Simulated scan of single mutants.
Amino acid sequence: MYAGSAAYYARGRVPYPAELADLLVDELALDGRGRLLDLGCGPGSLTLPLAPYFEQTVAVDADEQMLAEGARLAQAAGITNVSWVCSRAEDVSRSLGDFRMATMAQSFHWMDRDRVAGLLRQLLIPGGALAFVHATTHQGIEGTDRVPHPRPPWEQIEALVADYLGQERRAGRGYRQIDSVTEDERGQVEARIFGRAGFAGPKRLEVPGWVVTRSADEIVASVFSLSFAAPHLFGDRVGSFEHELRILLTQASPTGRFSEAMREIAVDLWTAD
């Protein structure tokens, strides 16, 4: 689904703020002991900030390119306690061992949620925690507050993607089903799923929104990091699309600098009874 997007994902998604890791460290008293499982890890966006607070970390993703990018970033950061495992979340087993904490971020909606929640409950030690992170890191939120640079022209960018790929959003070899439920309704569904799996909670933690400055290259990478705009979907027209995208960005900000207000991050903490 994200074929060819790994390097773009690592560069185009806004990094999680340090406050997110600090919040989890304080709330769960993370002290370098135990093991962490990051499911649907991508290129390690959440894995790498949390890995130093555990003896060992296991990062799982179905995309080998994402794992390779994560391993490259870990090496560059001097982080040596991460094992990168290529697997669908639905196929993880007890062979991975027991974990003090598990994390999921921006990935659960792609999974067989009941199956994955049940597997996570089996892998966590009694009293272990599942941190389910709700975040949007590919683009900011709309607003009228003053920011240092122009906002990226996301509406025009999406129109350009539609010109090349059609109005119906792609997802791998098929098309993405548009989710019409509200956030409250989605939360209620997730609560039932985790409750059936044997989790208690959740306790809601929040990290306030923040403002970032991004380059034109980062916005281009952000577009190619999306499942419905992955490079392979454009075929031999990918170069033409990128050329038009860069013209659009130059028109929006001749300096090539953009500012965005990022949405707040919510974390639901579930406890394995």
Results as ranks from 00 to 15, higher is better:
E55V: 09
Q156W: 11
V60Q: 03
Y53P: 00
L269S: 05
A59T: 06
Q106R: 08
Q75L: 07
G40W: 07
G201I: 03
V14T: 15
I125M: 14
R72V: 06
A216E: 15
L160S: 10
L36R: 10
D114W: 10
T213E: 15
T182P: 02
G70C: 06
H232T: 11
S240N: 14
G239K: 11
R72P: 10
S227E: 10
I125A: 14
F54I: 07
R33E: 15
A68V: 00
A3S: 13
C41K: 05
D217N: 10
Q139C: 12
Y164H: 11
W154D: 09
L28Q: 07
Y175T: 10
A191Y: 01
A159F: 08
R204L: 15
W154M: 06
A216G: 08
P15N: 11
P254T: 03
S180Q: 14
F234T: 08
F241C: 07
G198D: 05
S215V: 02
F241M: 03
L233W: 08
L24H: 02
L269R: 01
R13H: 11
R146I: 13
A89D: 01
G128M: 09
R146F: 11
F99H: 06
A76P: 02
G140F: 10
S227H: 11
V189G: 03
W110C: 07
L48I: 00
E242N: 02
A3M: 09
C41E: 00
Q167L: 13
M1G: 11
L37K: 00
S83G: 06
Y175L: 10
Y9W: 10
L120H: 02
A71C: 02
S227T: 12
M66F: 14
R121P: 00
L30E: 02
S5R: 03
G78N: 04
R146H: 12
R186I: 00
D112H: 04
R94T: 12
L67G: 02
G172C: 06
D22C: 06
A74C: 03
Y16H: 14
A216M: 12
E264Q: 14
F241G: 00
V181G: 07
I193C: 04
F258Q: 04
A76C: 03
S107I: 09
R173E: 14
E158D: 15
D91C: 01
T47H: 05
M66H: 08
R173N: 13
T144S: 15
R263W: 14
S107R: 06
D63I: 02
C41F: 04
E244V: 01
R257F: 12
R146K: 14
G78E: 04
